[in-house]
Amino acid sequence: MSDKKIKNVFKQGAISSEFIGESIAKHQTKTSIGAHNIFLGQVRADIMDGKTVSAIEYTAYEDMANAKFHDIREATFEKFELTCMHIYHSLGTVKAGEICLFVFVSSPRRKVVFKALEYIVEEIKAQVPVFGKEIFEDDTHQWKVNN
């Protein structure tokens, strides 16, 4: 692991389309880039036993999670030739249909960004201690589990 400063990946609430758009715009000055790839995780209105998920309330073991995000970032830069990489994850309440995870990778050429993005998202799902309380329309809840 390098001695680079550990970034805070978390944002309170949903990740807005304006924020995502601005992130893309910021890369227009980086003209060595020829390909971007973006993953957006969206809260799904799952139906279980006739009840519909209206939102997910995210919590995290924040220090460990940010350290894991950092490790994933370092491992990804070692494996893939990327120009840059950005990860944002929501904390707190995100309603069904809103974005809770934004991963953005860029490279001079296209092939690497497809592989890198999948790697990052799968690592996040498996390694990062984030917890999701699925809240139903009648205010009952259950705890989400990644599979």
Binding site: G41, I56, Y58, A60, Y61, M64, A65, H89, C100, L101, V121, I124, K125, A126, Q127, V128, P129, V130, F131, G132, W143, K144, V145, N146
Partner: peptide, 10 residues
């Protein structure tokens, strides 16, 4: 120390 339930990120 921490007790961590199943992860649900993303």
């Amino acid at each position: 120390l921490a007790l961590l339930p199943p992860f649900a990120g993303g």
